[in-house]
Structure formats: C-alpha cells, structure tokens
Computed example of a mutant assay.
Amino acid sequence: MTISFVARLLSLGVMAVLGTASHAEEYPARPIRILVGFAAGGSTDAIARFYAQKLAVELKTPVIVENKPGAGQIVAIKALKAAAADGYTLYMGTGSALSQTPGVQRGLSYEPLKDFSMVGLVATAPGVIVVNRDLPVRSLRDLAAYSKANPTKVNFGSSGIGSASHLAGEYLSKVAGITMTHIPYKADADIVQAMYTGSVHVGIAPAQGAVTAISNGKIRALAVTGSHRLKQLPEAPSLAEAGISGLEGLDPYTYYGLVGPKGLSASAAMKLNAAINRVSRDPASAAQIQDKYYADPRSGSPDDLRKAIQEDTEKWARFRKYVNVAG
C-alpha cells in the first residue's frame, strides 16, 4: 500500500466526517413542536396554529402545535424547560406568562429573561370588555354603578389564573371600582360560552374570540382596550373614551412571543426569527392576521422581544398593588 494511496484514503475519510458533521448541523431536520399553555380553540391556539402552518412552509419541515393547558401556563412552561435546547421544542408565550404575571407575582418557578431563549415577537392583540347581554349595563360607568348597588352579584370570567384576561379583570376591578368575583376557565372561548348561559357576567377577551358573538348580539361590548376603536367594532369605545382614569394601563391587552429553552443556539434562533419575520411582513399573511384574528403582526429581532418583555414586566410591577393572582 503506497503512501499516496493511504493519504487518499485519509483524505476521503476526513471529507466523509466533515460531510456528516455538516449534515448533522442542518436545522431543522425534523418536526418542530410549538407548546401552547391553553386548550385548543382559544386565541393563543389560533395564532400559534396560523404561524405553525406558515413556518412549516418557510422552514420546509412540519411544525406541530401541542396544547398543554393548566396552572396558568405552568404545565407548558415546565415542558419547555425540560426540553432539549435544540430548536425542536418552542413555546408560544403570551403577555401574561412572559411579563404580566412575572411583574405582579413574586416567587414564580421561572424567570422569562433567564430561563427562555428569545426567538421573536409574533403579534399583539387588543382586548374587548364584554358583558352578558342580560346584565343591565351599557358602559363601564354603568357597570361600576351596578356593582356598587349589587356588591356580591357580579362575577368575571378568565382563561385561567394569571392569564391576561384574569390580570386585566383584576386591574379593571380595582381601578374602576367594580366589585367582581373571579371565575377561572381554561381558554378564552370558555368565557364567551359561559356568557351565553348566563353563568358569567363580565369578561375581557381578545377581539378574535369575541367579535362574532358581539356581532350576533349574544354578548355586549362595553369598551375596547387601547387608545382607539376597532374597525370591526365601531360602536365600542376605547378605554380612552370610557371616562375612567387609569385604564390606559391595559394597553396592550396581550402579545404573543415565540421562545425556546435556555441555551438555544443563536443560529437556530435567528433562522426561526427570520422565518417569523417573513410571515409577519407578508402582505397576505398580515391581512389574514388582522382580519381573521384581529391581531397586529409584529417583526423584529430576538433582542427586540427581550426588550419588550423587560419593559412590560416593569410596567406590571408598578401595577402590583391593583391585582390579586391568588385567584
């Protein structure tokens, strides 16, 4: 066996190893799952499934939504923290899990800015304050007066303890002087359904889950969170028009951010981030998000998501005195 022949074999072996390593580093090479901390049918689930479908096309691999409801999204968060930081398990976090609850509650089992790898901000969504159609109120001032006259009768539903609808409801109760008993459910859709039967009087839900029921006259809108009205609900005033000082703090109602486990590689995060941005910036996708899900698509870098979480956490920490996350 000649030296040149041996050298050729070694060269081929090195090339094979390098080729195998290069192939192993390709991402994504298998299906990606996106964890959602709510049951199927709610607004977070809908947004996650829309982006999963679009990301599957962008990344050329299946992207599957896995619902893990319970314990204020802690079930989903624990699953994320236990997953390998390889980019194949992600979490569609909401404003409540990423900044609102961390802002108002100490001693959580996770810290978003330390325990998660940032991928990207997906969308923001307004909320709508709605009431059972049989409740004799047509404005937030009416609701405050009614609850004052009936201090033990009014309740409000939420999609779970620590959810955006829970925290916003608690904040509304304290700032507007509306006495309400909290009834937690597992998804935004449950709140609206409970209003049909009359078991829930008041709720704050993403517009996506409430507009149809409002348009059909099954529930009544008192106000839209934020500083302007929604084109889909032109008769519902914004909180800025409600005549109750301090409620502007409820804007934005919630947002959706995609994160991975701690230790996710920068290359995987940036590849996912670029795919999100392409979806959010696509005119057809953006129009569908706005018209079907009543949300505003967002784009930006992983650091932009980190900054948004940090700023919103600080805001809710200032509101800690207004909310009760014990239930």
Rank of each mutant, 00 (worst) to 15 (best):
A176T: 03
T254H: 08
L10W: 09
I64P: 12
N150T: 02
A40G: 12
D303L: 03
S96I: 04
R138S: 12
Y110C: 01
Y253A: 01
I161H: 02
E311K: 00
Y171A: 10
Y256I: 00
G226Q: 04
A123G: 00
K321L: 14
F5M: 11
L140F: 00
G37M: 08
S238K: 04
P62Q: 10
H201Q: 15
G260I: 05
D303K: 02
H23V: 14
A213N: 08
V154R: 04
E235N: 14
G260N: 09
A326W: 14
N150G: 11
L239S: 04
P252T: 04
Y253L: 06
R306M: 03
M195P: 11
D142N: 13
K218C: 09
T61G: 11
V122K: 01
T124K: 04
P62C: 14
P261R: 06
S299D: 06
A29R: 14
V36Y: 00
A39F: 11
L55E: 07
K186C: 09
R320P: 11
G177V: 11
L98I: 07
L233Y: 15
M270Q: 12
T179K: 15
V63G: 08
A284H: 13
A221D: 13
Y110I: 01
T124A: 01
L250N: 08
L18Y: 14
K321D: 13
G226L: 08
Y51V: 10
L113D: 01
G70K: 10
V75H: 04
M118W: 02
G42F: 07
R30Q: 15
P31I: 14
V192R: 05
R318T: 14
K68W: 10
T225S: 12
Q193H: 14
I77A: 02
A240V: 08
M15S: 15
D282A: 09
Q105C: 10
A287C: 13
E311T: 02
I161Q: 06
T101R: 07
P62D: 13
A295L: 11
A266T: 00
